[in-house]
């Protein structure tokens, strides 16, 4: 279990960081996912750990978005601000864009190409972002990705395809 977690922890952190845009929150999310896997699935065969770990990680990221959504509503209510279209403020994770910006320090460190990629991935809707990173980076199969994202294989294919096309369009200028 130790070696498995060591093999995925950095990528898991980057996935969480790109999803939530905060280093501290990403570390908390990864730590929670590690606790969850060890507590509930340590007895499972090691071949199952990867999809299970990412399932927990994605679940924690969704929880983070829900908490943020609730927090934002309370703030809005407390400030007595009336939004023009509250329907866009719903908790539909499907359409939620990731928070803008990301971690500037990390972006400087890893160079322009990486920074451009970082921005482009962060700008993807959360579900597309997850489908792309799990499929393209983590190498999960469509079925495993669907399990991790708690959706159908068809949805994974759609999200992945849209993500690839969006990224290609976005990165075309930066990646000659």
């Amino acid at each position: 279990m130790d070696s498995f977690l060591a093999s995925v922890e950095r990528r898991a952190f980057r996935i969480a960081q790109m999803a939530v845009g905060s280093t501290e929150d990403a570390l908390d999310i990864v730590q929670d996912a590690m606790f969850g896997l060890v507590k509930r699935y340590a007895d499972k065969p090691p071949s199952d750990w990867k999809p299970l770990f990412y399932r927990i990680l994605m679940s924690r990221i969704r929880d983070w978005y829900r908490r943020r959504s609730v927090r934002n509503r309370w703030r809005a209510w407390l400030r007595n601000i009336r939004y023009e279209d509250r329907s866009e403020e719903t908790d539909s994770i499907e359409t939620l864009p990731a928070p803008p910006g990301g971690n500037p320090d990390a972006q400087v460190m890893i160079g322009d190409a990486m920074a451009a990629l970082d921005r482009a991935i962060q700008a993807l809707p959360l579900r597309q972002q997850q489908a792309f990173l799990l499929r393209a980076w983590e190498g999960l199969s469509v079925r495993e990705t669907a399990k991790a994202m708690k959706c159908t294989s068809g949805s994974v294919k759609t999200h992945y395809s849209r993500a690839v096309h969006t990224l290609r369009d976005e990165l075309g200028e930066h990646w000659p």
Binding site: E9, R10, T23, M109
Partner: peptide, 22 residues
């Protein structure tokens, strides 16, 4: 490449989180 250049502080915290979980 981004993961390979991850901040050492972050790597250390990830490692500690893993040890805590285990």
């Amino acid at each position: 490449r981004g993961v390979a250049h991850l901040d050492p502080g972050v790597s250390a915290r990830l490692s500690r989180a893993r040890q805590r979980a285990l």
